[in-house]
Amino acid sequence: MPRTPPLTATLLALLALTACGRPPELREPPATTGAPRPSASATPSNATPTAPATATPSAPAAPTAPAPDPAATPCRGTPSGDRIVALLRGSAGVLPRNVRVTVRTGPLCAEGWHYTVLAVAGHEELQAVTRGRGKLTLVTAGTDVCGVEVRATAPPGIRTLACDGVPGA
């Protein structure tokens, strides 16, 4: 009979051992809460069978405040389009004083943020995102106002307008 090399014999022995194991019916199931574990013994139990545990209903959740409206809606008088234009012409320095500007869309408001689209004579349309209830702060202005701050912190209604375009325009 030919002699089997030691490495081959070792591999065959390991293969035989790894293929064996505890049969599935004798393995313990993973731990579950509330359910009894079956016994691994082969002898039947004389104990009375018990009904499976049932979950008790949890207490109803406490009412929560309604979520803010995610849509941007026309601002109720403040800020006005003129106030947005004044900010862009003044301290923000975005618009020169001698260019004709008309408000095309907005301002639209959501949670203290504002979105406005301006038609600027001789130039591309200008979008502006501002915030604040008393003193206005310019967040961004330009032809693409979907910047990091708008994407990360603006309310959904403003973010949708600034990043996906003006609906119906």
Score class of each variant (00 low, 15 high):
18 T>S: 15
23 P>K: 13
165 G>T: 00
68 P>H: 03
112 G>W: 04
125 E>K: 05
31 A>E: 14
1 M>D: 14
26 L>T: 07
123 H>K: 11
29 P>I: 02
139 V>T: 05
156 P>D: 06
5 P>Y: 08
16 A>H: 10
169 A>S: 09
115 Y>R: 05
134 G>P: 02
138 L>V: 03
139 V>F: 05
117 V>Y: 01
110 A>Y: 03
122 G>W: 06
19 A>Q: 15
98 N>I: 00
57 P>I: 00
52 P>D: 10
84 I>V: 11
164 D>F: 11
33 T>S: 14
6 P>F: 04
130 T>N: 07
105 T>E: 15
98 N>R: 13
146 C>A: 10
48 T>C: 06
128 A>D: 09
3 R>T: 00
42 A>Q: 13
74 P>D: 12
83 R>Y: 02
84 I>D: 08
70 P>E: 05
94 V>Y: 00
102 T>C: 01
64 T>S: 14
27 R>V: 12
73 T>Q: 12
69 D>Y: 07
128 A>L: 06
35 A>F: 10
69 D>E: 12
146 C>P: 01
1 M>C: 10
65 A>H: 03
66 P>M: 06
47 A>D: 13
14 L>I: 04
94 V>E: 08
76 R>M: 11
144 D>F: 05
70 P>S: 01
131 R>E: 14
89 R>V: 00
146 C>Q: 05
115 Y>A: 12
95 L>E: 07
15 L>A: 15
136 L>W: 01
7 L>E: 13
126 L>D: 02
68 P>S: 02
126 L>A: 02
84 I>R: 02
154 A>R: 02
118 L>V: 01
161 L>P: 08
78 T>Q: 10
123 H>R: 15
83 R>W: 03
139 V>I: 07
131 R>S: 12
135 K>V: 04
110 A>R: 06
61 A>Y: 01
127 Q>S: 15
85 V>N: 01
87 L>D: 03
126 L>C: 06
154 A>T: 01
141 A>H: 01
55 A>Q: 09
53 A>G: 15
103 V>S: 03
72 A>E: 05
68 P>R: 03
10 T>K: 14
94 V>C: 07
117 V>P: 02
47 A>Y: 11
74 P>C: 07
62 A>H: 02
137 T>N: 13
149 E>H: 12
73 T>M: 13
87 L>C: 04
129 V>F: 08
87 L>H: 01
58 S>I: 01
165 G>D: 08
162 A>I: 06
3 R>W: 13
51 A>Y: 09
143 T>S: 10
44 P>R: 09
97 R>C: 00
74 P>R: 07
83 R>N: 05
98 N>G: 06
118 L>K: 01
91 S>M: 05
166 V>N: 04
97 R>T: 00
146 C>F: 05
5 P>V: 00
151 R>L: 13
29 P>N: 09
12 L>E: 11
58 S>M: 07
115 Y>C: 07
128 A>Q: 04
4 T>S: 07
135 K>A: 15
121 A>V: 00
